[in-house]
Nucleic acid binder design. Structure first.
Lengths: 127, 127
DNA sequence: AAATATATTTTAGTAATTAAAATATTTACT
DNA sequence: AGTAAATATTTTAATTACTAAAATATATTT
């Protein structure tokens, strides 16, 4: 169990690194990155992911929308749901965040991350 | 990089699991667990770990102190620093948190976690 | 068509966080 | 030693983030 906590700790350090000298808050960064990974998320998904109420999601997204990093797209199949997606500026922002990492290291660590991710997936019994 | 984010995501799910049906906030839980791992932390260390200001640490610790889960110990070598440590109740609380995990699984996943932790350590270039 | 359910937003109040000043102690300087 | 500068934490006032509950809009059920 201690190891899970240390993984958690390192994961936190990772986000700290990303947000270093950044104007956006850590949760804002994480949200942008998740939107990149997932290619957009419904408000409800975001609420689940962060374990916050729907109202908090509205507020988070309002701010990123005002910064032109995110936009709301109402789904045509079910017009109740709103999908949050990165704008062009949002995509650029995500790229910038990654440029903080020493580029030479990127390929080295890619495989390690794939392994870690797999292991942790098994561990939590999820995808 | 995507993998690091997915690790980050799973790490978040881990904390979500821990805090399920818990009266304490996620950060309060994480702090208690970190105190357990490290055997106590200075206020400054806590601020660094969570990337918050010293004032926020005082506030966080006040609450846990009021709940009798944490106590402040002023260091004798340097009386400016305060070390936060778990009380007896705090230790018990940490035990309870771990009991949420299916006990049969615990030994199975221990080694996996050790591996993941090692890999991530290498990755971030830290201990 | 009416009632119920679901997804998001709005609103008002609470809690968490910040920046800056205050306090206490230690270290460095002359 | 004595004063100034540095460090660690706390306090305070103001801001920001979050919640709970009501409101809005759309979908589903009966």
């Amino acid at each position: 169990m201690r190891e899970m906590l240390e993984v958690q700790q390192k994961s936190m350090m990772f986000v700290n690194m990303l947000s270093e000298g950044e104007s956006l808050s850590q949760n804002q960064l994480i949200l942008l990155l998740q939107l990149k990974i997932k290619g957009g998320m419904k408000a409800t998904e975001i609420a689940d992911f962060f374990s916050v109420t729907p109202g908090a999601v509205t507020s988070m997204c309002d701010k990123l929308e005002k910064l032109d990093l995110l936009e709301r797209i109402r789904e045509t199949e079910d017009r109740r749901v709103v999908k949050m997606v990165l704008t062009k500026d949002g995509e650029i922002k995500v790229q910038e965040i990654f440029l903080k990492f020493p580029q030479e290291k990127l390929t080295d660590i890619a495989q390690v991350l794939i392994d870690v991710n797999l292991l942790m997936g098994k561990l939590l019994g999820i995808s």
